[in-house]
Design a protein around this nucleic acid. Sequence first.
DNA 1: GTTTCTCATAAGCCCTGATTATCGGAGTGA
DNA 2: TCACTCCGATAATCAGGGCTTATGAGAAAC
Lengths: 297, 297
Amino acid sequence: MRNITLKQMRYFQALARHGHFGHAASACAISQPALSVQIRDLEAELGQPLVERGPRQVRLTAFGESFLARVTDILKQVDDLGDFARSARGAMMQRLRLGIIPTIAPYLLPRLIGHITAEFPGLDLHVRETLTPRLITELIDGRIDAALLALPISEPSLTEVPLFEESFVLVRPADEADRPIPDAQALAEMRLLLLEEGHCFRDQALSFCQTGRNMPRDGLDGSSLTTLVQMVGVGLGVTLIPEMAVRVETGSAPVSVARFAEPQPKRMIGMVWRNSSPLADQFYRISEVAKDVGLTA
Amino acid sequence: MRNITLKQMRYFQALARHGHFGHAASACAISQPALSVQIRDLEAELGQPLVERGPRQVRLTAFGESFLARVTDILKQVDDLGDFARSARGAMMQRLRLGIIPTIAPYLLPRLIGHITAEFPGLDLHVRETLTPRLITELIDGRIDAALLALPISEPSLTEVPLFEESFVLVRPADEADRPIPDAQALAEMRLLLLEEGHCFRDQALSFCQTGRNMPRDGLDGSSLTTLVQMVGVGLGVTLIPEMAVRVETGSAPVSVARFAEPQPKRMIGMVWRNSSPLADQFYRISEVAKDVGLTA
DNA sequence: GTTTCTCATAAGCCCTGATTATCGGAGTGA
DNA sequence: TCACTCCGATAATCAGGGCTTATGAGAAAC
């Protein structure tokens, strides 16, 4: 008692259409006995005849009629699978769940979205903005497909592609614009406002100041670069922000921007995804798009 | 490039459910390589990966997700086919297209319908009332499934089952009730009203009178037994009607009924169907029902 | 009676799809 | 760093399902 097969359904459909075993068989490009046997087996499986074998013609039984209706429906859906796969292959990536860290998202995303959807029309794009550790976890767990963040990640199961380097700039109160640009040493002694724990950008800024990550600091922590810049604007201290944030963040507060001398503090922006992701090719295309957007900022 | 098989769909469904090749394989009661190969072939057929093979778990791709939805739907319908066949097997006959000649239909059908639907609950019963030759044609063409008519038919492709014999009775004007009952010879010389050409009952009546079928007659032809009886009632002649029609037809006209001496004119009522009909068993049951109804008339 | 048409059956062959065995790669723990 | 483990892929092999051709059987047609 084996299961009904698609082959049997197709043969039966042909038989119903032609009303003749021989014709149906040649329509299926098989011999007549092959079709006869399959129909017989199908009827045995169903426990009742599908066709009435008359001497002059083959006619469907009432059961055969209703069975045919169902079979036709099923076969149509099965054939649709092929078309479905074919169309999906064209678009390939249907859904992209992209993670981005908060110190990139507001500055890169607005333009990036336009370019990505131009490159992948019809793409269902989901953006997840959170801190690097969580992005990594979600990436590994398969809850997101790729992420834009600061390299390196050094996670062996993830592929990382560097996109572009980005300098950090010093943000000071506007009335300090004339002062000389501090070096790392001098910066360490200033009142440096930083993002709260967890942001990779905080660590990167701290490492520039050659200050241990866990050293006690008397600075204030902000939850976003916007907050930090506004705090600078009211004279609470100075801060560092990435180059790409300058245009957005420094227009609405009395602050001045100063670039460091070499060696500048910087970070490498990159894209990561699972090594095992079958969408790697598409991710490379997206990384190119993101690189262009980042470089023309 | 062979077609997608149900087997592949089932394996894929199991793989999606378990997220693990080995577990899915044992759930399908096959070995892991067998499942791996089928999934690989399926992906090749579709032109894109269905699952992302990670080191720690197997995850569906976005395409795999939507493919799974379709596959699940199809498999459900396929499995329903089995249930469908099983339930259909219980009822067996779902539709009965029954042909009946006009000289039987009005007298047998009213009670017969009740008995048949009692025997086959839920049966979709269609009745076709027309002359024997057309019934035979429609039967052979498969437009009806069985017929109740007067035997013999002598059509080799049809199975005929005799149900019961039925005598013909003489219908005379009521004021002739006292006259002696004519024999066949005397009847031939009376003004005999008959059904129009094509009714087998006409031929049977004529053969009783030992009159050639094509012999010119000066009698009148009616299109139904009712018409004939009414014509007798107004003195236009005499007629023959089958026993089963007496109760229905003779109440509304001033006529008398007389039974012939042996050998009585009679006809054999029977049921016929195609030799090749798979419903033969059911037809035998129906013929028993019809016989009971006819005999208890 | 003979021929023809059509579906069922039989015998044989091939290929699909199964099996077991093994490999390779990645994570894991001493 | 080096076994050790887990998991999926691959290879070699085997069995059975499904195809083929050949033939049979029954009914219709001439």
